[in-house]
Amino acid sequence: MAHDTAHHESNIGRIWKVFFLLSVITIVEVILGIIKPAFLIETTVISMKLLNWIFIILTIWKAYYITWAFMHMEGETKGLRRSVVWTAIFLICYLIFILLTEGDYIYEVFKGGYKAWDF
């Protein structure tokens, strides 16, 4: 077996630390979502509100902690880590890029008045 019970250090301290971090990030997200600070909504970065970018970055940060600490990715070999993470990230980015571009194009067509929809 890959795992021998002998070389497992107990890392309960780290588990609670990660839980604390995830909680804090979630609380920050909820507070931002309720207050919706005006300057974050008015500022637009790469055709999206700054607030939405903050939400997405915080989410990816949470995802990193869940995968690395809870799913124990940090303890796996480099090969496994890369084949899981890079594959998923590449395919997901690709998919999101195509679908969002296409969705925006259809929006422009609707807005251009070629099709009446608000009646």
């Binding site: 997901i92 998919l95 999101i96 679908l99 969002l100 296409e102 969705g103 925006d104 259809i106 929006y107 609707f110 807005k111």
Partner: peptide, 12 residues
């Protein structure tokens, strides 16, 4: 991503 597509389609 499909959700994002529909949302961008009706972004306003």
């Amino acid at each position: 991503a499909a959700y994002g597509f529909s949302r961008f389609k009706f972004i306003d």
